[in-house]
C-alpha cells in the first residue's frame, strides 16, 4: 500500500513539474501562433508580402530593433528601464561616420564609436546602480544628451561615407547563409543571450535583482554591479546596432534609431518581459520584434500612411500592458 502511495505521489510530482514547464512556453506558443495568423492574412491580402524583396527588407528592418530589444530585456529583467538606446545608437553611428570621413581607418573608427556607446552604458549603470538614481530619469537625460551630441557633430545633416571596404559594407548590406548578415548576427546574438540568461551566472543574476532587490542584497549579491552589467550590455548592443545601421545605409544621420526605444520596449513586453522585473525571455522578445515589424510591414503593404506607425506601435504596447494587467489581476 505504501509503495502504491509513493508511486502515486511521484507521478503527481512529475505531472506538476511538466505543467510548470509547459506554462513557461505558453506565451511563446501564443506569439508564434499570432505571427502565423498575421502572416497568412497578409499573404492573402497582398501578393507582395511573400516576395523575396519584402521578406528580406522585413528581416533587415527588424534586426536593429532585435539588437536593441535584447539589451532592453536584460535591463527590464533587473527591474529598470533604458530609454537611451536610440540616442546611443545615433551617437555611435555618427561618431564612427565622422571619424571615417576624417580619414581614419574604418575599423578603428567603428571600434571607437562602439566604445563610446558602451561608455554611455557605464555612466547609466554607475548613476542607476551605485548612485541609486531612477533609471527612467537618467536614461531620459542620456537619450537627450546622446542624440544632442549626434546633432551637434553633424549639424543636423546626414554624413555620407564612401570608399569603405567591402567587408564593412557587407555587415549591414551583405548576405550569409541566404539571409541578410545583419539578421544572422541578430539571431546569433539572440541565441547567445537566451542561452546566457539560462546557463551563465552573470546573466542569470539579472532575474534575482529584478525579482527582489532587497532579497538580492540580503543574499549577498552585488546589486549595483549586476545593474551596471545590464546597462553596459544594453548600451553596447545599441551601439552595435548603430554601427550595423551605418554599414547598411553608408550614411551617418542623427536620426538613427529614432523612436526605437518604444518599439523595442513594446517587443520586450509583448514577449513577456515584466515592467516590474524578474521576468522576461530573449525568445519572447525576438518574437515580439517580429510581431511589431510585421504590423509595420502590413501598414506599408496595405498603403496605409506611415504616419500611423507610431500610433499603431503605441497602441500595441498599451494593449499588451492592459492584457497583462488584467490577466495578472485575475490570477491574483
Amino acid at each position: 500500500m505504501q509503495k502504491i502511495a509513493e508511486k502515486k505521489q511521484n507521478v503527481e510530482k512529475t505531472v506538476d513539474n511538466r505543467k510548470i514547464k509547459l506554462s513557461k512556453f505558453k506565451r511563446e506558443f501564443f506569439l508564434v501562433l499570432t505571427i502565423i495568423i498575421v502572416g497568412v492574412i497578409l499573404s492573402l491580402l497582398t501578393p507582395y508580402f511573400l516576395t523575396k524583396g519584402n521578406l528580406s527588407a522585413l528581416l533587415i528592418g527588424l534586426s536593429a530593433e532585435g539588437f536593441v530589444a535584447i539589451g532592453i530585456v536584460m535591463v527590464m529583467i533587473t527591474g529598470e528601464i533604458d530609454l537611451s538606446v536610440g540616442g546611443i545608437m545615433a551617437l555611435s553611428s555618427v561618431v564612427a561616420g565622422s571619424l571615417i570621413l576624417s580619414g581614419k581607418n574604418v575599423w578603428v573608427s567603428v571600434l571607437l564609436g562602439f566604445i563610446l556607446g558602451s561608455i554611455m552604458g557605464v555612466i547609466n549603470g554607475w548613476l542607476i546602480g551605485y548612485r541609486k538614481i531612477n533609471s527612467f530619469i537618467i536614461t531620459l537625460a542620456m537619450m537627450g544628451m546622446t542624440r544632442g551630441v549626434a546633432y551637434i557633430l553633424t549639424q543636423g545633416s546626414p554624413l555620407a561615407i564612401g570608399g569603405v571596404p567591402q567587408s564593412f559594407e557587407s555587415l549591414g548590406g551583405g548576405n550569409l547563409f541566404g539571409l541578410p548578415t545583419f539578421t544572422v548576427v541578430f539571431i546569433l546574438l539572440a541565441s547567445i543571450s537566451g542561452f546566457g540568461l539560462k546557463k551563465i551566472k552573470a546573466f542569470r543574476e539579472f532575474y534575482f535583482v529584478g525579482s527582489s532587490e532587497n532579497s538580492a542584497k540580503l543574499t549577498g549579491l552585488d546589486v549595483p554591479k549586476i545593474k551596471m552589467r545590464a546597462f553596459v550590455l544594453s548600451a553596447s548592443l545599441a551601439s552595435l546596432a548603430g554601427i550595423f545601421t551605418l554599414s547598411r545605409f553608408l550614411v551617418a544621420t542623427p536620426n538613427t534609431g529614432n523612436g526605437i526605444e518604444l518599439r523595442a520596449i513594446a517587443a520586450a513586453v509583448i514577449g513577456g518581459t515584466s515592467f516590474t522585473g524578474g521576468e522576461g525571455s530573449i525568445l519572447g522578445a525576438a518574437l515580439g520584434v517580429l510581431i511589431v515589424n510585421l504590423l509595420n510591414n502590413a501598414l506599408i503593404l496595405l498603403n496605409i500612411s506611415v504616419y500611423w506607425q507610431n500610433f499603431v506601435n503605441g497602441l500595441l504596447l498599451l494593449s499588451v500592458v492592459l492584457i497583462d494587467n488584467l490577466t495578472q489581476k485575475k490570477s491574483d
Binding site: 532575474y207 527582489s212 538580492a216
Partner: peptide, 14 residues
C-alpha cells in the same frame, strides 16, 4: 529574515 529574502518569480531550486 523576517522578509524571508525570497525571489517570488523564481523557482524553489533558484
Amino acid at each position: 529574515y523576517q522578509e524571508l529574502a525570497l525571489f517570488p518569480h523564481l523557482s524553489v531550486v533558484e
